[in-house]
Design a protein around this nucleic acid. Structure first.
Lengths: 200, 200
DNA sequence: TATCTAATGACAGTTCACCCTCACTTTTCG
DNA sequence: CGAAAAGTGAGGGTGAACTGTCATTAGATA
């Protein structure tokens, strides 16, 4: 069973993170010092750095990649890739309870707001391309390091990135319709570009 | 005509940038202080900040987006979008003199190497999506802010991003073949995914 | 040449993230 | 219970990016 010690650590960690995010949201990432966070969480500055090696690490989180990937795997192979992606994204986010959707939005806004965090996002993108390439490789029975597979993964992540920017720029609109707009429009656009006739 | 003053300013600016990049390459971005750069360029630290408001700004550069975009515009409309992108990228980079190709590689490595620069790259990606969306919108006669158009632009930029990572991870291979591998493989992959038969 | 203006350097100062050490408290476990 | 181990706070310290001031120098101008 989990000892008292571990429980307390988890509590402290959560408290620091909670207060940090609250302060970031309230006054911005750059305008929030580690001191303030520590004070708000009622720990010393040293303790903050014991839990989070750097200030930006406090933003790190359970990732959605894995969720999205699961949904992607559930898509029937051989279908239209854009529609598959669309269905996967949609399933992932619409099934999210509203509270978590809101949290996700705030996290996205945050990640795009300050340079150190944008750098973090870049890391996540790189990782996501890797993970997605892995999944694609399985489905296509190709190598995960195949540049073409990685390029395909990159394309998907690029679409995702454009959705992120859209989320930032349209604070009102809900996640579902943003995804819909982007993916449906993408399908039409690609169709027009390649000379295919759009399917709807 | 340009006075002596302006010429000197341009000179100083170039000198700072040249030495900065040299030092970054030699000892890494994070291990290079503004002091060192200033000393190498034989100016005072204050002068450095007069020319470049922040340390990362010294990395900013003439962008390649515009070049790539020009090539993209030259592609025949209605063709396969992947092949069009491929041709455009290829044209842009293979026509680059070797010296500039090397410079470009180094710049890419640099941009991916340190957090503040990755943040900068993220900004460039956002801008690039915007510019590309604009170009796509013209070609498709749609709105540049259409989420679908932006998603398509995002996909292209995502492919480009995957090429950037590939460049970082394969320091040996030349730019042309990296681009070829990625784009040809992408075409095949998309074909397989969507159930189309690949074209080659 | 004489004056006006823009660019520079010297330098002191600030702010923060991050580091280190050491004494103290709290939990664990024999 | 008593010793060992883990977690914490206090506080001093560092490095480096940036800021602001002011005197000096170099270039433009009449």
């Amino acid at each position: 069973m989990t000892g008292l010690r571990e429980r307390k650590k988890a509590q402290t960690r959560a408290a620091i993170q909670r207060h940090a995010l609250r302060l970031f949201r309230k006054q911005g990432y750059e305008n929030t010092t580690v001191q303030q966070i520590a004070a708000a969480a009622d720990v010393s500055e040293s303790t903050f750095f014991r839990y989070f090696p750097t200030k930006e690490d406090v933003v790190l989180w359970d990732e959605f990649d894995t969720l999205i990937l699961e949904r992607l795997r559930e898509q029937p192979p051989g279908g239209d890739p854009i529609q598959g992606l669309h269905a996967a994204l949609r399933a992932t986010f619409t099934e999210l309870p509203p509270a978590e959707q809101k949290q996700l939005r705030e996290r996205i806004d945050l990640l795009l707001s300050a340079p150190p965090l944008r750098a973090l996002l870049m890391d996540e993108l790189e990782r996501a391309i890797g993970v997605l390439a892995q999944a694609l490789a399985e489905r296509l029975d190709r190598d995960a390091n195949d540049p073409g597979v990685r390029a395909a993964a990159g394309a998907v992540i690029g679409v995702w990135l454009s959705v992120l920017f859209a989320i930032k720029d349209n604070p009102k609109t809900d996640l579902g319709s943003l995804i819909d707009d982007a993916l449906v429009g993408l399908d039409i656009g690609v169709g027009q570009l390649s000379g295919r006739r759009s399917k709807r």
